[in-house]
């Protein structure tokens, strides 16, 4: 049996800091097939961005970061691979779209020259003229008007939406097989967000890439993802096919996220149902289930919630929660679903 296109096994990322060890990602495992989209949802500090940076090997340059586990991309293991090998893949077979295109692009070089550089690094034999044509072609593909003229502009001369388009052009210039988008639309207005999501969807259909979409917005995930991971305190606490996860969410934290969101597609509710408390510190994670201080049901499971870390169980749609599945289903049907 061959491996899935991307397989992550027991990924751990920790940072040593003066305040203690930050356990940013703990035992995270997931996989993704080519042409599919995986959504990773979580709040700030849930480990979603750190996971994506680990995939690209971007923690390697940081001496205080420690990454363990396995990352298999197209039958090649990346955690143990050499820096040169990972560099060969980064920007080529796998690439990334960052949240803030203004800080992700170099202010001193034109947008075009940065795309050309990305292309020529992975195509050493190509001369400047061909690379330039390729870059202009990419700018046109992502919907930038007058690409040949905009090629010579600097990042600050682009509007927010255009800048994000240029970033996407840069990320796609080498036909990546894996595209990681880290909050690509968070800094954008809704109408521009709709344009960018539409663009990512079209380009994915065209290029057949696997996409990892990292976001805090459940709406974006519902629009784009085939499968969803919910992260909390550096751990994957629920994962499943998108439709299943939205219709039968299993983890009380996922319920909390859904209950916190006012929705345009439903009647107005009198009250939102927030999750009490605030997200945990990754230096000093709560014992047992990291969610227990905020979980309204933690007491129901005896001491287990406070002492024992729940593992992800249950087939395609799996969840890390101590509550017995029958009770969880009953609670969801009776208490949660009617209020969503």
């Amino acid at each position: 049996m061959s491996r899935p296109f991307l397989e992550v096994k027991d990924l751990n990322v920790r940072f040593e800091t003066d305040d203690g060890i930050v356990q940013a990602v703990t035992d995270s495992s997931f996989s993704l097939e080519a042409g599919k989209t995986l959504g990773i949802v979580g709040e700030s500090g849930s480990g979603k961005s750190v996971t994506s940076l680990a995939l690209l090997g971007l923690h390697r340059t940081r001496s205080n970061a420690k990454v363990t586990g396995e990352i298999w991309l197209d039958e090649q293991e990346l955690v143990s691979a050499s820096d040169a090998d990972v560099r060969g893949l980064r920007g080529g077979k796998m690439s990334m779209i960052f949240q803030d295109p203004l800080s992700a692009m170099h202010p001193y070089f034109t947008v075009g020259s940065q795309i050309v550089e990305a292309y020529r690094v992975h195509h050493p034999g190509v001369n400047k003229k061909v690379a330039r044509e390729r870059a202009i072609d990419m700018l046109a593909r992502v919907g930038i008007p007058q690409p040949a003229r905009r090629f010579n502009d600097y990042a600050h001369q682009f509007s927010g939406g255009m800048r994000q388009r240029a970033m996407i052009a840069m990320a796609l210039v080498n036909d990546p097989k894996l595209l990681i988008a880290d909050e690509p639309t968070t800094a954008l207005d809704v109408t521009v967000q709709a344009q960018i999501l539409d663009l990512i969807r079209d380009l994915q259909a065209e290029f057949g890439s696997a996409v990892i979409m990292i976001t805090h917005d459940l709406g974006v995930v519902a629009e784009l993802a085939d499968e969803v991971l919910v992260m909390y305190g550096g751990k994957v606490i629920e994962k499943g096919p998108t439709i299943d996860l939205f219709q039968r969410p299993q983890h009380p934290y996922t319920w909390g996220l859904l209950g916190s969101m006012p929705r345009l597609d439903r009647e107005v509710r009198d009250r939102l149902i927030p999750v009490k408390g605030s997200p945990p510190s990754l230096i000093n994670l709560p014992s047992g289930c990291a969610f227990h201080p905020r979980c309204p049901y933690a007491g129901r499971n005896g001491d287990r919630s406070f002492t024992e870390v729940p593992v992800l169980t249950g087939g395609v749609h799996s969840v890390a929660c101590h509550m017995p599945p029958e009770e969880r289903n009953r609670l969801f049907q009776e208490d949660i679903a009617p209020n969503l």
Partner: peptide
Amino acid sequence: ALMSAVPVPDPVRR
């Protein structure tokens, strides 16, 4: 246009 651009957290109605 503004309202239709808001992503709906319901994959069935995607």
